[in-house]
């Protein structure tokens, strides 16, 4: 376990924080969860860096998908789930396309995000999309300007979706409620206010 430093100077305690990797600080189950959700054998990563070299987010941020893979293998759950970089993957799948180990690093990242969400760690925009779909069936719903444009084109104001047929909405809400997604989204957003 990392050495706890109860120095009375909080700043110094943080500056001198024990940086060693101790096996008891890691969660060996974490990689298994990642593999189950992401359906990819993430533990087979051999750290070649093809993923980071392919990543459009890496050159403009500290996001390193290879390091997420490494940390997942080492079970550094806390470090992963609290890292704001986790949400910088654009899911372009270039890494997955090129990974010589035939892994899907993108899906491993998605799995880690799923695990973060289970601990209420999630950016607000993701939850707002959930709320919109719960309400309208669409992540990007219709609006008046668009309705006018649609009519101009000879289209109906509302597309042939849940917008025109709101009777389909209860079914959608039932699915979301099954996973308590709306409830959790509302709660997390409210807590964040």
């Amino acid at each position: 376990m990392a050495v706890k430093k109860d120095y009375k100077d909080q700043k110094l305690a943080e500056k001198l924080r024990d940086r060693k990797y101790y096996i008891p600080d890691s969660n060996p189950e974490f990689i298994k969860d990642v593999e189950k959700i992401g359906q990819t054998a993430a533990h087979m990563c051999y750290q070649c860096g093809t993923c980071t070299g392919s990543c459009p987010s890496a050159p403009r941020s500290s996001y390193r998908i290879r390091l997420f893979m490494r940390k997942a293998i080492l079970g550094l759950e806390e470090e992963i789930l609290t890292d704001p970089d986790l949400w910088l993957c654009t899911t372009c799948y270039s890494c997955t396309d090129r990974c010589p180990r035939d892994l899907a690093p993108t899906d491993a990242i998605m799995a880690m995000r799923n695990l973060a969400f289970k601990r209420d760690i999630v950016p607000r925009n993701f939850l707002q999309t959930v709320q919109l779909i719960y309400k309208t069936g669409h992540g990007v719903p219709n609006n008046d300007a668009n309705r006018a444009a649609r009519k101009r084109l000879g289209l109906e104001a509302e597309p042939e979706t849940t917008h025109k047929y709101p009777e389909y909405l209860p079914g959608i809400r039932r699915i979301l409620d099954h996973y308590r997604l709306k409830e959790n989204a509302d709660r997390i957003l409210a807590e964040g206010e």
Binding site: Q47, G49, C51, T52, G53, A58, P59, R64, R66, L67
Partner: peptide, 10 residues
Amino acid sequence: NAEDTLLGRP
């Protein structure tokens, strides 16, 4: 294009 994995930089 690659990652210098020892630097951790693309």
